[in-house]
Design a protein around this nucleic acid. Structure first.
Lengths: 222, 222
DNA sequence: GCAAATATAATAGTATTACTATCAATAATG
DNA sequence: CATTATTGATAGTAATACTATTATATTTGC
């Protein structure tokens, strides 16, 4: 994407101190994206992150309450960024069908680097979304955290795309169900392709995932 | 389901000592199903389970290497049990379409108690599948564990249903992708209905989830 | 340009977790 | 009834997920 200097806004409830407001904050975000990828979320700790970025863990605790809220911060950033991409990519398209098709593509395709956000590696972040993001809301605290608005950026993406579905077929009864199925599904399939290929049908070279979910959506709402 | 006394076989790699071979084993399984539901997998520990069932944690460690393999054991049992239900329910149906429809229903409907397996509460176990099962294979050890066959019962269900799809439409290119999308999707939607209703379209009383995925499958393969 | 406020570093400490190890007591089995 | 297997009781350990305190930079407001 272009070299605009845009800032993605993340709800302040997700941090104690805004990581986008200091150099240490940037290092925390950039370092955590790398380290979570490297170790996996369970093995990742603030101690190890501190060692990596050369700061004590106590400093990281001044930005984030826990590694769990840091992960929510990252996913929240990601979904806001996806929404921005969505709006950007469909801005001048008039046909609702073309708009939805383009949107499904963005939601299901592999992510490319976006130079607009210097310290965030979107490709690695997408890998975290694929591998770790289910852990964000599969906890005993979901209801609490949902009330505090922790998942609003994800819900907003689902809502925006659901509205596009309704634009095409106002009588369709399950837009949110369809779109969340597609988003979660595409991530799952990308994960399966790498780790549990028996559960998917991904061939090298071809991107079956985009095709499969595009077909699925248009057949479902017809 | 009927009162047959059938034993679900779980791969021996998943335990150190077969929990189905002793009374303590049964208490571990029954107790863990209750306690994981109550506390959530992260907060659940063998210490707490030991207190609940009146045995020291060291005894539990003689059955399972870790709480992670215990969870895999539970999900593995569940998918074997689902497969048995699938076979049972479609045994005398000749029409491939009826068979698939019945199958999708079983995969997406709420679970009912099955008296055949006395010490296992299938309804609670299904709640664990819905809430915790993604954690089973979203770890750094997936590839390793997959090679050891830890996920074979789940893969077998997907394979069986994929074959039914191919029976109806032998040219359909993405059977595994479709079926794993449906299974994971239905579980996700049930979770969303309870905790993140903005992501789904479930109304009280009606079971939209079964309807939605049944439609989706038949439209996709037509 | 300097005091005051703020951010970060350095270090220490704690309850809990996820185990492993050892030995005694009990129950099952041949 | 002697042997073997199973469970209980107890202890111990490194790592985790924090909290707290004090010292040292760095920024900022006047």
């Amino acid at each position: 994407m272009k070299n605009l200097q845009i800032h993605i806004k993340v709800s302040p409830e997700l941090y104690l101190k805004n990581p986008d407001s200091s150099e240490l904050g940037h290092r925390i975000i950039a370092g955590s994206i790398e380290l979570i990828n490297e170790l996996g979320f369970e093995v990742f700790t603030f101690k190890k992150l501190g060692d990596k970025i050369g700061s004590p863990e106590s400093s990281i605790y001044r930005y984030f309450e826990s590694k769990h809220t840091l992960l929510i911060y990252l996913t929240s950033w990601f979904w806001s960024w996806v929404e921005y991409q969505l709006v950007f990519a469909t801005a001048n398209i008039n046909s609702p069908i073309d708009k939805l098709e383009k949107t499904i593509k963005i939601l299901t395709q592999p992510v490319e680097v976006d130079k607009s956000f210097s310290y965030i590696n979107e490709v690695l972040l997408h890998k975290i979304i694929i591998t770790e993001s289910v852990k964000v809301y599969h906890t005993k605290d979901v209801d609490d955290e949902n009330e505090k608005g922790y998942f609003s950026s994800y819900k907003q993406v689902v809502q925006r795309v659901s509205d596009m579905v309704l634009e095409i077929n106002p009588t369709f009864k399950f837009p949110q169900m369809l779109i969340s199925t597609v988003i979660e599904g595409a991530n799952h399939q990308r994960y399966f392709a790498q780790h549990l290929p028996a559960l998917t049908n991904v061939e090298k070279g071809k991107d079956n995932i985009i095709k499969f979910y595009t077909d699925l959506v248009f057949k479902a709402i017809k």
